[in-house]
Nucleic acid binder design. Sequence first.
RNA 1: GCCCGGAUGGCGGAACGGUAGACGCGGCGGCCUUAAAAGCCGGUGUCCCGAAAGGGGCGUGCGGGUUCGAAUCCCGCUCCGGGCACCA
Length: 834
Amino acid sequence: MSRYEPRAIEERWQEVWEREDAWRVAGPGEDGFDPSRPSAYVLEMLPYPSGEPHVGHLKCYAVGDAIAHFRRRNGFQVIHPMGYDSFGLPAENNAIKTGEPPLEATTRSIESFSRQFREWGISIDWSREVATHTPEYYRWTQWIFLQLLEAGLAYRDRAPVHWCPEDATVLANEQVVDGRCERCGTEVETRNLEQWFFRTTAFADRLLTDFDLLESWPEHVVTMQRNWIGRSEGAEVTFRCEEAGIEFPVFTTRPDTLFGATFFVLAPEHPDLERLVAGTDAEEPVRQYVNQVSREAPGARAEGDRPKTGVPLGKTVTNPVNGEEIPMFVADYVLMDYGTGAVMAVPAHDERDYGFAREFDLPIRRVIEGEDPDAPGDDDGLPYTGDGPMVNSGRFDGENNREAYPEIVTWLEEEGRGGPSVNFRLRDWLVSRQRYWGAPIPVVHCPDCGIVPVPEEDLPVILPEVDDYAPKGKSPLEAATSWVEVACPACGSDARRETDTMDTFVDSSWYFLRYLDPDNGTAAFDRAKADHWMPVDQYIGGVEHAILHLLYARFVVKALADLGHLETVEPFRNLFAQGMITRDGAKMSKSKGNTVSPAEYVERFGADSARTYVCFMGPPERGGDWTDEGVEGVNRFLARLWRIASDLAPDEPDPAAARCPDGVDGPARELAAKASWAIDKATRDFSRDFQFNTVIAAVMELVNEAYRLRDELEGSESGRAVLRYSVATAASLIQPFAPHLAAEVWAMLVGGEVWREPWPEADPELLTSETVEIVVQVNGKVRDRIEVAEGAGEEEVLALARSAGNAARHLEEGEVVKEVFVPGRLVNFVVRGA
RNA sequence: GCCCGGAUGGCGGAACGGUAGACGCGGCGGCCUUAAAAGCCGGUGUCCCGAAAGGGGCGUGCGGGUUCGAAUCCCGCUCCGGGCACCA
């Protein structure tokens, strides 16, 4: 008997697929496009090519490929492309360390990824491959930049920005985690720099409301984005400092607590601060405080539980609702980049204001009664953030705060002191980077004309070669003088190119559009093609991109749609977030030395085993711990399938083995029924939340059943026919996970190409059996099981159940007061007086 | 602190409110073999009664509840993982 040799099998079929161009698909306007067939876009997040693919990639692409195969075999023409997010810091940092140009390391990594993806047998239409670092690609990234610039959605501004001293570049808000650089973990600093932004805030509302257009996204991802966008409704209220003649609008979500405002706080960065204190006693302490705050890492400032600090300004503002003069302070708990950089402080009903008031011994005035006056806490339950009747609030006294809320806002509006207002936590996306390995921002700075976009026909602005990649606080591109110095496209006078490059998240925010038309030399993509394929029907990737990438891609697609380049306003109709694979219960990392190299397992057990294993570990949205025993187990199962197939294989494959023989009975019928059961179960679980683990388990059961009945069936021609059918069915069902083995087994038994076969259908006749087992319960406890005819009526079943041996004994213990009958499942006798 | 997940055998995990533990791993026993590996077959939640057949108790993180019946639904906790966190 021969052995299952996965490597040989896999190589053979990979050659076939390549030769046949099996995964190529055509869109509108392309040869072979069939408008009559339904289409589907299955997409996995493109990898950043660094070194070799890891198990996270394996899982992502194994899951995505299974979905792609399943859709194909259900009649869809599936577009399933692949590319590389190949601009980025690791290649550049490597270049700084070793001097090797980023292009070389990147090219090497792409080759390695591409080779391994092919070894995994992922069904990719390689004719659509893109890499974001190529001029053919970033030409269109630059084009998108210009589109946004022209539309006023890209702008340049001087603002306090996050600066990572390690990477020597600015970072977007989203790339700062706990005050540290998301990439390297270094504490970020604040710098005041002129930078490029994309106006994501212009879409803040639509980024929220358009969640309604999505079909299925994990709820927690939507929640994370909602929180990130952070919409809050409230009011704007203007407080005036009479002495200085300055008006200070503030944003508040609690206009109902206006009467409780006892002081007023400005952010240390507030532009009016200097003017307010200039020439007063407060000037020096305020200056010192502001300096001290600015030296602190923004991360430290974000820590909520540290004591409040601040300095009085010696000035007051007037509370518009009651005319009270309340003192002003500067304090670092007020942030300049949210709202107006100033807050009215209501210590009785806001925890932060309360903390500040206690620290500085400021008056705390309750304006809302708690429901429960004895609530625990200091100062009679203050700060109290709940609802209740208003007090100390003039004509609103006694009214519930919720009801008073709109009245107060209306009053403010009438008085010209404010009105309703909505604020977002979301900031504009800072897209410029002072780094080398990225797409150059396609503008020119002209002393006469200012910022001039590079004309579209001059794109791409090619990334020049440099000798030194090390960042020096400005872009390494500054050194490429012959590239930097350029004639102004508008007036022709001496001008300089922009030397910042784009955040690599810009590259990956539109790649799924380029796949649809990768060779287009005159446009980023053809609109008809985009409208045909978009939105992506199923997007697959790790949760770690729940905010950054997905938010940016949503923004770019909305912007392009607004500009008339695209119909779709939401790029990803369905999102699947795979869970992380751990090893020994811990996140894999090189420093822990617990990484798993997919290549090693593919070498030892074959790609089919590795792929099937990651899908079998558990529900794919959850994580799982990688074990060698687990891979071996799956490998054993595939070998078992191969072995029985090879034992049963006739000299010539027989197309009849694709269908269940008619009129089988006895053990043959049992096996055929199991096959139908497996088809039904696999089909349902595939569609329901991608329950791949149970799909694979069902196929395992089918194979086990074939082994169990094999001796009985092998003797007869009809028995062998059912065996072959069942094993071919198992191969067909496992095909989305183990495409090579499935192809091999199918070719042996049936002949032809299983990946082109329609997904099998269960025989409804075989899904039901003549008899069913009924559970007999007494008081909810299982006491017996009886066999009854399928569809047997209540009376008949109850009668049988009552007389069933063990059940009957328990019935004697008392009076039957109730009988429950669930057809085809169980009966339950409720007995009293036992 | 707030918002999500999760908790089921020795382990990963299955279970439309209706037989808890499918499938896999591990371990145990048997067959095959001179022997081993591989393979094939059979057990495997736990405790008690029984020589056996069999029967019974207890069991899905903890405490309540709804129901003829709860791993599943409701209320209140505990622990673990993830996200957010001075956003006015």
